[in-house]
Design a protein around this nucleic acid. Structure first.
Lengths: 111, 111
DNA sequence: AAACCATGTCAGGTAACCTTACACAATTGT
DNA sequence: ACAATTGTGTAAGGTTACCTGACATGGTTT
């Protein structure tokens, strides 16, 4: 209901493939996780699983680091960006609420 | 130039994940490959890599098999479907060619 | 100078994957 | 009726891929 449900966000890519797609070392990829910049899921056995969105994010992270930004700063940026995103979400819901109140829309069943 | 370049066709999913996504056994997935219904890529070390498109195709295949269609038949269907697809592609190119001839468009450099 | 950053690398261990082979019920072909 | 094929399970033995933890190191920060 809230999203794409599409391929981009499904966590299905193992770290070796991510390495190949990004050119980063596994060490780097794991380190950025340790620094809380990226959040893979895990398989039952403990293997990391990433999404295409994660892959793109990793590339951005790597670029910033190359520009001398440290993980600590990157993390702050990300939190800021996400806060803004949350705010938008809230705003959207508020407006939706206003409309519902004005025009008496109901949350009808799916279709 | 010819395609989406997007996530759907990138071969990045290992067989274990495909198993989880489709509910098929690894045996089945490998068998359908043996019957030439599906064509994963391979990692350097020999592990199979599938795309989301492959995953969807596998589900379709499994459905047909459940309906009693044999791999042999499914393969024929697929070849037929692909031939039609190729024909469309050819048609498209022919029309494009006609237009180019009519209006003298050049294949200029990329942008 | 002490602490931290980002990364490489090595070791030992487990999970995930590979191929080959045998089995077998069910279906299809002759 | 019988032989061949289909689709799937399962087991063995082997290799690849991934995991964590630890030590090393040259550059920054503090």
């Amino acid at each position: 209901m809230a999203n794409d449900s599409s391929y981009k966000d499904k966590k299905v890519i193992t770290i070796g493939i991510v390495r190949d797609l990004t050119g980063l070392s596994e060490r780097q990829i794991r380190y950025y996780e340790e620094r809380k910049l990226i959040f893979p899921e895990r398989s039952a056995g403990g293997s990391r699983k990433y999404s295409f969105a994660d892959v793109e994010l990793l590339v951005e992270i790597a670029n910033k680091i190359e520009d001398g930004v440290q993980t600590h700063e990157i993390r702050k940026e990300m939190l800021r960006a996400q806060k803004k995103q949350n705010q938008n979400e809230i705003t959207r819901k508020m407006i939706q609420g206003q409309l519902n109140a004005q025009f008496g829309l109901r949350k009808g069943p799916s279709s």
